[in-house]
Design a binder for these strands. Structure first.
Lengths: 233, 233
DNA sequence: CGGCGGTAAAAAGTACGACGTTTACATCAC
DNA sequence: GTGATGTAAACGTCGTACTTTTTACCGCCG
């Protein structure tokens, strides 16, 4: 339960953030800084800094005379990597995973198309390397190794798009892929069709074929969504 | 220069955030908390809270014995609304506007398609209402009124998609549209073609025609990108 | 009996000073 | 020249005192 962070600040922040995103404090409920300080056995200073960060994530709102009130989930900064991690660790993991995958399905095809236009030779090489790595580890219960290549592949695509907003989604994609591998029981090896599609994307980007890169990535995304349909209500 | 915020915290945070995103402190440069406290005539307590928030945005990194170091721009949490606002107020506004518009062009069509499937009758009504409002204010130098309807329209679409990640981009779109109206010299009325497209999207969503809603929104996005091409290098 | 205003308390906001902890850097010994 | 060691600089944490804002309560007046 204790996240065992580097400092007191991190420890309290993680604990509180996790509790809030998990719904332990319903929207509108209040906590007092002194109370939190006592509960975690830290000074009010530490708690105040934590509250300020939580406030910057729009998870809570601090008002005088009333305390720190939890904001409704719709107002949370769901793009904050820490909020994403907390929510993926919580109860409504499937719902969160679906939201993120839909986002992926919108963004990644466009990013791949841009990558086909903008990728540097180094990025093309990296892409091919990761695709080959995926092929090599796609059989024989080597899911963990496969995952590393998969994450690296998508990260390169997003970076190669040349768009900073896309590039910053690399962490999100990494979280999604990691979550899928770790938490959803995957008895067999990854879908061979997906592996082939990745190789195709690498090819298309290398050849500068934006339309094909976009289309193939769209198929990957559709596959990911369908895969999610099988395992989530 | 002074942002005249509600509290000392907000004032210092805005000033520092603005300065950092504006590039006044190059990546790697360090500032000391005491120094900042002195410069803004506030206590170290306030500065520490500000630094913690800045740290949570990945704008800076605080390390012992060295100080608060500014992180390279690639690591910033560019999805944080405050970072977006700071950057839009800064020097590389055009570049930022382009990045965001590309993101829009990827997300909004998919969101519109989902909206066509998921929109409630109330949302459909709101959509039609805003579209009509756009038509009504599309002539006669009523850009400010038009903007209000434009923002509301896109916000409804993103909310109606039923995806929280999309919904949270409403603020981003609002910033973009506002920036476009306010900062780019728009001598004449908005493009009539765009107005027609918005009406079409409202219709498509109402009729549950996901493919058409997506396609029309894609055309809106393409138009926005082209418009940006005319005004940015 | 009900509305209005003033006062008091509660909680966060701010400030300050002290000490702990880490770590870059310089110095010294080998 | 290289490694160990010491030192000081900066953040990290703490406790306390004071300020400010906001709410709630109580008493007064109509």
């Amino acid at each position: 339960m204790t996240t065992e962070g580097r400092g007191l600040h991190t420890r309290v922040l993680d604990a509180l953030g996790l509790a809030i995103t998990a719904g332990e404090y319903p929207a509108g409920s209040v906590v007092r800084t002194d109370e939190v300080a006592q509960r975690f056995d830290v000074s009010r200073t530490v708690v105040r800094e934590v509250v300020r960060v939580l406030e910057s994530m729009h998870l809570v709102e601090s008002r005088r005379r009333v305390g720190v009130t939890v904001r409704p989930a719709e107002e949370w900064n769901v793009y904050d990597p820490r909020v994403i991690r907390w929510r993926l660790a919580g109860a409504d993991r499937p719902r969160q995973l679906r939201s993120l995958t839909v986002l992926r399905s919108a963004v990644e095809p466009v990013a791949a198309g841009l990558a086909a236009r903008n990728a540097t030779p180094e990025q093309c090489a990296a892409l091919t390397e990761q695709a080959l790595g995926m092929v090599a580890t796609s059989r024989g219960r080597r899911l963990e190794e496969y995952l590393v290549h998969d994450i690296a592949f998508h990260r390169v695509v997003l970076n190669a798009s040349g768009n900073e907003m896309f590039a910053r989604l690399g962490d999100v994609v990494a979280e999604i892929l990691t979550g899928r591998t770790r938490h959803q029981v995957m008895f067999d090896d990854p879908d061979p069709a997906a592996v082939t599609l990745h190789v195709g994307v690498a090819e298309a980007v290398r050849e500068g074929d934006a339309a094909r890169a976009e289309e193939l990535t769209r198929e990957i995304a559709v596959g990911a969504l369908q895969e999610l349909d099988v395992l989530a209500p």
